[in-house]
């Protein structure tokens, strides 16, 4: 918990470093890949609120990502252009769906919760798959246009340029990150954390654990929905694959390879995942095999994620330094 001047200063330094990193990213990798990294970064951070902070092992997050993408995509494909309204609808779509699914599954714990969210994910998938007249079914929802923002003095902001769209994603990414970090440090986040460690004891302290967990589930749904809307706009199509349960597995994997103990972990995980996916698919058409092997190796040797690796390396270096003295 940051308290007092020194720690707040450290936070400012970290925030500045994050902004600089986001600004530099499109200089290092192709701009659309950078946008994808940020979009999946948002999605992974939202998932980490559940997996890392609250200990709710949801395996159905792709349903909310997809719901947001399809709602905003349908709105924009119908000829509407208001980007704020599209994002609002996407957030509402993801949030309402999360409230429904969460209300039915939040009381189940452990594996049961995981399997329920997984099954709901498949239900959403099949509804979208069969509702061809609206969603495009197997072909995905095509013809999504990037909306515009009307500002009082600056005029109309357009995002057809990929760099402009990256800027939009960057702003939403940084805002989501700030909100989520603030949230995990708030009393709300601390109670979620306590309930992850011992739900029964937290309940007996007087906290309504299920209501707070449901709130976290809905918040994650809203943010995932917004990430989905950005994804639909990025490639101007919402593919049906984005709603499939494998998407839920991938985002949990991003959280695990990065590390669950901070919001930086999932972002790192998303970046590495997107990068590796691109790299492997260039090398070999059977690239999911390499991805699968990578998953296995990371889970065996780095169960705490990459942040754990950094911690280990720095501990090892400081030990080395002490030995030298």
């Amino acid at each position: 918990m940051p308290k007092g001047g020194a720690l707040a200063a450290a936070d400012i330094v970290r925030a500045a470093a994050m902004v600089a990193a986001v600004a530099a990213l499109p200089l290092v990798i192709p701009v659309n890949i950078a946008t994808e990294v940020l979009i999946y970064g948002i999605f992974a951070m939202a998932t980490n609120l559940l997996v890392g902070t609250a200990g709710l092992y949801s395996f159905g997050q792709a349903a909310f990502f997809g719901a947001g993408g399809y709602v905003a995509g349908y709105f924009l494909a119908q000829g509407f252009v208001s980007l704020p309204l599209a994002l609002l609808l996407a957030g509402a779509g993801g949030g309402v769906l999360a409230a429904l699914i969460g209300a039915l599954s939040i009381r189940r714990t452990g594996i049961y919760f995981m399997m329920l969210t997984f099954a709901f994910n498949q239900l959403v998938f099949y509804v979208i798959y069969s509702w061809q007249s609206v969603t495009g079914g197997e072909d995905g929802l095509a013809g999504i246009r990037r909306g515009t923002i009307e500002l009082p003095f600056l005029g109309t902001l357009k995002f057809d340029d990929n760099r402009a769209f990256y800027a939009l994603a960057a702003v939403l990414f940084l805002v989501s990150m700030a909100i989520l970090i603030r949230m995990t440090r708030s009393p709300f986040g601390l109670v979620l954390d306590a309930a992850r460690q011992n739900a029964r004891r937290t309940t007996s302290l007087g906290y309504s654990v299920h209501a707070l967990q449901l709130a976290a589930f809905v918040i994650a749904g809203v943010i995932s929905g917004i990430a989905g809307a950005l994804f639909g706009m990025l490639y101007r199509i919402m593919p049906i694959d984005a709603v499939h349960w494998t998407g839920s597995a991938y985002v949990v994997f991003m959280v695990l390879i990065g590390g669950q103990r901070s919001m930086l972990g999932p972002v790192l995980g998303a970046a590495i995942f997107i990068w590796l996916q691109g790299l492997f698919s260039l090398v070999w058409t059977r690239w999911p095999l390499l991805l699968g092997l990578f998953v296995i190796v990371v889970m065996i040797y780095l169960p705490g994620g990459l942040l754990d690796l950094f911690a280990r390396v720095s501990a090892w270096r400081s030990r080395l330094r002490e030995q030298r003295r």
Binding site: F253, L289, F294, I296
Partner: peptide, 21 residues
Amino acid sequence: YLPQLITLFGAALVIEQLLLI
């Protein structure tokens, strides 16, 4: 069990691709 099932998910990817090969 979260690492376990993600690991098994990775294994499933490997097996499916091996079937294709």
